[in-house]
Amino acid sequence: MGGSSNGTFSAEEKAAMKEAAAEAKRAKSAKGKEAEAQVCLDKIAAMAPADRALAEKVHQIVTTAAPELDVKTWYGMPAYAKDGKAVVFFQDAGKFKARYATLGFQDNAALDDGTFWPTSFALVSIDDAVAARIAELVKRAVGEAAS
């Protein structure tokens, strides 16, 4: 996410901050988890076709690999949380007018590997090998041993 050259936030960044405020409000409601999960699915459905296909596949992989994660949104992006904090998220290319979608992991993801490791990945397609790698990363992120 990069703001404009004069240091202000871009329209996309401002929209993401508004989404974060709405997410916090939904989380406090009686139907917080249920409402957040539906908003996540609605966000995926509203994506451009190529991003939507990737997001749907990521959603299926993450919810299968780590069903204990809560489905929600994080700054308006599909996300999967543990103890209320996003662990993994999907950023569609269209959200910030990027060249590719991104699969990202937050700092609470247990992906530590020495003193240097990736926390986000460019995502342009998902074949069986990529799906298996995503599942393995998600399982590691939530502290499960790779199977």
Rank of each mutant, 00 (worst) to 15 (best):
P78R: 08
S5T: 12
A15L: 11
A93Q: 08
T8R: 15
D83A: 08
A21V: 02
L54K: 11
R99L: 11
Q91S: 13
A24T: 13
F90E: 11
T73P: 10
S147P: 00
F89C: 10
E56G: 11
V62C: 05
A53R: 04
A16N: 01
T115K: 08
A101Q: 03
P78I: 01
G94E: 14
F96Y: 09
E144T: 15
A46K: 01
A65G: 03
A146K: 05
F96N: 14
R99W: 10
L54A: 00
A98S: 09
D70N: 05
V130T: 12
I126G: 14
A66N: 11
F9M: 13
A15Q: 01
K57Q: 07
K18N: 00
A55R: 06
L111P: 03
A37K: 06
V130K: 09
A11Y: 12
Q91C: 02
E36Q: 15
V71H: 07
S4T: 15
A48M: 10
A145Y: 05
Q60S: 11
F105P: 03
A65E: 12
I61Y: 03
K18Y: 04
V138R: 02
D127F: 00
A22Q: 15
K97S: 13
Q106E: 15
F121K: 14
A65M: 14
L137V: 07
S10Y: 01
L69A: 00
W74V: 02
A53Y: 00
V138Y: 02
V71M: 12
V130S: 09
G7I: 09
K43Q: 14
P78V: 00
V138N: 04
F89P: 05
K57D: 10
D51C: 01
A81I: 07
L123V: 01
M47D: 11
K18V: 06
I126Y: 01
F121L: 05
F89Y: 15
D128G: 07
A50N: 02
R52Y: 03
E13Q: 09
A20M: 05
W74C: 00
K57W: 07
T8D: 08
K97A: 07
D83V: 11
F96W: 09
A15E: 01
A122G: 07
M47N: 03
I134K: 05
A22S: 04
M77Y: 15
G32Y: 11
D92I: 14
I61F: 05
R140Y: 04
E56V: 10
L41E: 08
T102F: 09
A135D: 00
W74L: 01
S29I: 05
K97I: 06
S4E: 15
P118Y: 06
F105A: 01
I61N: 06
K31G: 15
A50L: 06
A53D: 02
A79C: 06
G32F: 09
D83M: 13
A11E: 13
Y80G: 02
T73E: 09
A22H: 11
A22F: 06
D128V: 03
E13F: 09
A16F: 05
K14F: 09
R133A: 14
K31M: 11
R99D: 03
A24H: 14
E136G: 14
G84A: 05
G76T: 02
A65R: 05
S4N: 14
K72F: 00
A122I: 12
